[in-house]
Amino acid sequence: MVLTVLLVVTISFVVVRVIPGDPAAVIAGIDAAPERVERIRTRLGTDRPIAVQYMEWLGGLSRGELGTSLTRNRPVSAMIAERLPITATLAGSAFVLTLLIALPAGLLAAIRPHGLADRALGAFSHAGLAIPDFWVGIILLLIFSVTLRVLPLFGATTALHYILPAVALAVSRAALLARVVRASVRAELKKRYIEGIRARGVYGARLLWCHVLPNAMLPVITVAAVQLGYLLGGSIVIEQVFSMPGLGRLILTAVFQRDFPVVQAGVMFIAVCFSLINFAADILYTIADPRIRSAR
């Protein structure tokens, strides 16, 4: 776990700093005076050896410092803290929505294989996997904000602003998760012990709630955690569609402005969150499954 986070931190550093190319020269422009390039290089700290830069980056991280923005001259950590609530709210509501769609849909489809609900889910997941979420966002804007005019167009000032982006993000994630729920419940229903429980006269909803679901949820937890992480990363594109000033937009603006400290810290922040979520899912997994607990 610690190793993964350290690697993620390192990769964020390597990608931005070590890939050939001089950030200082890029920032200064093509025909800048050499002294100006040198000045920026000193400010970035890229004139020192890579190993020293790396140790400084790690040292800063341990103190919670992520560097200073080149264009705004502010600590990056403050900028991230400012934008995080928007992205977190968006990802969180999209995640709840994903679960609300995926769990019932997957369950209904699993109870009656090849039934109406199963075929509907099949079509939904095919479509959800093929259609990119940002296009879903654009179409939702077209329908609800431009044509029907019931929801606000751009921005993130009211709760209403979050509805469309959350739906856009949730559709494709739910398509995938519902497939997992379906497969997992199906597999559980085929096991021998279910026959035994049925023989004892437990049927229908009671069988599902008390016996099938707790066991079938295990693979779902893992996949759901990955989905939550992808919601954080995927919000870069959706925030752009809906002009929401979140974390993704911060990173994207920084990319265009060549503000490397912000890109490096923002990317690392999301990736570390993703690793932590997966780690939390592993813990949840052991709590949910007594077999793993006793095996330890």
């Binding site: 690697l7 964020s12 990608v15």
Partner: peptide, 24 residues
């Protein structure tokens, strides 16, 4: 395996965005 795991912990387009930030 370690490198693969770490590379897979950048969700979605994040890694691509970081790479393009440097490459242009």
């Amino acid at each position: 395996a370690l490198v693969v795991d770490a590379a897979l912990s950048f969700p979605g387009v994040l890694l691509a965005v970081a790479i393009i930030a440097v490459l242009g």
